[in-house]
C-alpha cells in the first residue's frame, strides 16, 4: 500500500506525469458523463417500447396490481392469440408488405432516375426544375390533398376512362392512386429521395461514366448497370426510409380510404373497437393491453428488417451524402 502512495506522490511531483494524470481523470469524467447521457436518452427511447411489450404479456390481474413493475407475475400469451385472429395477421401483413415493398421498389427506381438526371445532365431550366424538387419537399402534402382526392375520385385522364368504361373511375378504396403518384415521382416524400440520390450521384467520379461511354455503353445501360450499382449506400438509405415511412403512413391511407386489408396500421386504429364488440371485453384497461399486443405484432416485421439492414443503413447514411 505504502509503495503505491509513494509512486502516486512521485507522479504528482513530476509535472509531465501530473498533466497525464489530470488528462486521464478528465477523460474518465467526460466518458462517465457521456455514458450517462447516452444511457438516459436510450432509456427515454426504449421505455415506451418496453412498456408496450410488458403490457402485452401481462394478465388481467397484473394489470391492476400496483406492485407489478416491468416483470408481470403471471405472463400470458393470450392477448397475442386473440389479436392474431382478429386482425387476420398473416394475410393482412403479407398484403401490406407486398404493397409497401412494391412501392419502395418504384420509389427507388423513379427517384434514382430523376436524381441521376439532375446530377449528370445539362439542360435548360435545370436550376428552376431542381428548385421545384425543393418546393415539393417543403410544401406540406395536406395543401394538395383535396385536389388529389378529387382527381382520383373521378379518375378520367384525358377522357380515356369514359371512352373505355363509359364512365369515370372511382379509385377510392384501392391502392392504385398511391401507385400512380409514386410512379410519377410524387409519392410519399419522393422529393426527399430525389434530393438524396441527386446529392449522391453528384459525388461520384465522372470518369466511370466516361469510361463506359468510350466503351460504347448507352445512357440507359450506363445508368442501370453502372450508376445504380454504385449507388448502393443511397439505395439502402432510401429503401429503409421509404419502407418505414410507407408502412407507417396513415395520411395517404386515410385520404385514399385504402382498405384495412392492405394497410395494417389502419386495422390497429379500429382494433380496440373490434375487441370490444366481438369479444365483449368491455374493460378499457384490458382493451389497451390487447391493443399493445397488436402494436407489437405490427412493428415486428419492420423491426426485423431494420435490424437486418441497420448496419448497412447507418453506413449508407454516412456515405450517401444525404446532406451533400
Amino acid at each position: 500500500m505504502n509503495q503505491y502512495i509513494e509512486s502516486f506522490k512521485a507522479t504528482l511531483r513530476d509535472s509531465d506525469q501530473r498533466k497525464g494524470l489530470f488528462n486521464d481523470v478528465k477523460n474518465l469524467a467526460v466518458n462517465i458523463v457521456r455514458f450517462a447521457i447516452i444511457v438516459g436518452v436510450c432509456y427515454v427511447i426504449l421505455s415506451p417500447i418496453i412498456g408496450i411489450f410488458v403490457n402485452s404479456i401481462s394478465s388481467d390481474r397484473d394489470a391492476y396490481n400496483p406492485m407489478v413493475y416491468i416483470l408481470p407475475h403471471n405472463p400470458t400469451l393470450e392477448r397475442y392469440q386473440l389479436v392474431w385472429e382478429r386482425i387476420e395477421y398473416l394475410p393482412t401483413m403479407a398484403k401490406d408488405l407486398l404493397y409497401t415493398v412494391s412501392l419502395m421498389a418504384i420509389q427507388i427506381l423513379v427517384c434514382s432516375m430523376v436524381g441521376y438526371g439532375f446530377a449528370r445532365f445539362e439542360f435548360p431550366f435545370k436550376k428552376l426544375l431542381f428548385g421545384c424538387v425543393v418546393v415539393m419537399i417543403v410544401i406540406p402534402s395536406h395543401t394538395i390533398m383535396l385536389p388529389i382526392y378529387m382527381t382520383f375520385k373521378d379518375f378520367d385522364p384525358l377522357g380515356l376512362c369514359t371512352l373505355i368504361f363509359g364512365d369515370s373511375l372511382n379509385l377510392m378504396g384501392s391502392p392504385i392512386p398511391m401507385y400512380i403518384m409514386t410512379v410519377f415521382g410524387c409519392g410519399l416524400r419522393s422529393g426527399l429521395y430525389i434530393y438524396i440520390f441527386n446529392q449522391f450521384f453528384r459525388g461520384l467520379p465522372k470518369e466511370i461514366e466516361e469510361a463506359a461511354l468510350v466503351d460504347g455503353c448507352g445512357t440507359w445501360y450506363t445508368y442501370f448497370r453502372i450508376m445504380l450499382v454504385n449507388a448502393m449506400p443511397s439505395v439502402i438509405t432510401v429503401a429503409v426510409f421509404s419502407l418505414v415511412w410507407q408502412f407507417n403512413d396513415t395520411f395517404y391511407a386515410k385520404l385514399f380510404l385504402i382498405s384495412e386489408d392492405i394497410v395494417i396500421s389502419n386495422k390497429i386504429s379500429s382494433l380496440q373497437a373490434t375487441i370490444a364488440n366481438t369479444d365483449q371485453i368491455l374493460d378499457t384497461t384490458i382493451q389497451e393491453l390487447y391493443l399493445d399486443a397488436g402494436i407489437m405484432l405490427v412493428v415486428l416485421p419492420i423491426v426485423l428488417i431494420y435490424i437486418l439492414l441497420q448496419r448497412h443503413f447507418i453506413e449508407g447514411v454516412e456515405r450517401s451524402g444525404i446532406v451533400g
Partner: peptide
C-alpha cells in the same frame, strides 16, 4: 445529353405538373 436528361426526369416532371 440534353435529351437524355429530360428523358430521365420526365416521369417526375409530368407528376409534378399534374399533382403539384
Amino acid at each position: 445529353r440534353m435529351r437524355s436528361g429530360y428523358m430521365f426526369i420526365l416521369p417526375w416532371l409530368f407528376g409534378f405538373l399534374v399533382f403539384y
